[in-house]
Design a protein around this nucleic acid. Structure first.
Length: 269
DNA sequence: ATGGTTGCCGTGCAA
């Protein structure tokens, strides 16, 4: 039986118009076949489609809006766009779904960051975040009859494990690591039996981050990171998992995003 | 305890 390698990356690029050239560095470092972007921050008419085609990503799907949000797929393989719900009825660009020719479904998510105060009574943005993840859990529960292999990836804006943040104790009350968010995310994950494909390779007691704030003078020295970017797969892909890479060095690329790319390689029949 | 930075847009807001 011939096996095909698939490398897929997720990256919150924080403006694709400003940083599309960094995708060439990602290409050199990891050669991803498919890239899921979040926070593209541009309406579709300004998406740098030709520039990214010239890098080899002939197949593209993007869904953007002015200033905020925005998700995209760049692919060397053909993609078929799948429809999805209007999350929280807001018309935001936070989810993009597609199917590869081999039947694997790809789901790119950008979960609301949730503002600063972890209390929905005081902060609507936190309420929106909790509603979004609850709606996602519900969506995946309803998808239980869809047996297609799936890869779900994106900026989920929640660091679920104690070693997914620089200090579990100090971040218990900080949006992205509060117990209510973590419970919601794990509920979503279990709603469709998703496997955390990155932690499949890295033991839970090892620190692992994909984001470092811009607000630290020396991000590497202070190392106050969080693992906000995730790749999950359905159990029927567990035996196909081969390797993962979190491109920490990307945090030092010129004019970097505050998130670094996370990549997963699988063997597919 | 506080403030720290960035992008987009327009001098505020979201992250």
């Amino acid at each position: 039986m011939t096996m095909t390698n698939l490398t897929i990356a997720t990256w919150n690029i924080n403006s694709v118009r400003l940083r599309w050239r960094l995708i060439e560095r990602l290409l050199v470092a990891a050669k991803p076949d498919v890239i899921a972007l979040q926070e593209t921050k541009t309406p579709d008419e300004f998406f740098p489609a030709q520039e990214l085609r010239d890098l080899g990503y002939a197949h593209q799907l993007f869904s953007g809006m002015k200033g905020y949000n925005g998700v995209a797929f760049l692919s060397r393989l053909p993609l078929t766009r799948l429809s999805g719900p209007d999350w929280c009825g807001r018309g935001d660009c936070r989810h993009l779904a597609a199917r590869l020719d081999n039947g694997v479904e790809l789901h790119n998510f950008y979960v609301p960051a949730g503002g600063d105060i972890p209390d929905r009574a005081l902060n609507d943005k936190f309420g929106h975040k909790l509603d979004f993840i609850a709606e996602a859990a519900q969506f995946w529960r309803r998808e239980h009859k869809n047996a297609a292999p799936k890869i779900l990836l994106g900026d989920l804006n929640i660091a679920p494990l104690e070693q997914d943040v620089w200090s579990h104790k100090q971040l218990l009350d900080v949006v992205s690591h509060t117990p209510v968010e973590v419970a919601g995310l794990l509920e979503w994950q279990s709603a469709h039996g998703f496997v955390d494909a990155i932690r499949y390779f890295v033991p839970a007691n090892e620190k692992l981050y994909s984001w470092w704030s811009y607000r630290n003078r020396d991000w590497r020295k202070s190392d106050r990171g969080r693992r906000l970017d995730h790749i999950w797969v359905t159990p029927n892909l567990r035996d196909n998992l081969r390797s993962q890479k979190i491109l920490k060095d990307a945090r030092d690329w010129p004019q970097p995003s505050d998130h670094v790319p996370v990549t997963l390689t699988l063997d597919l029949p």
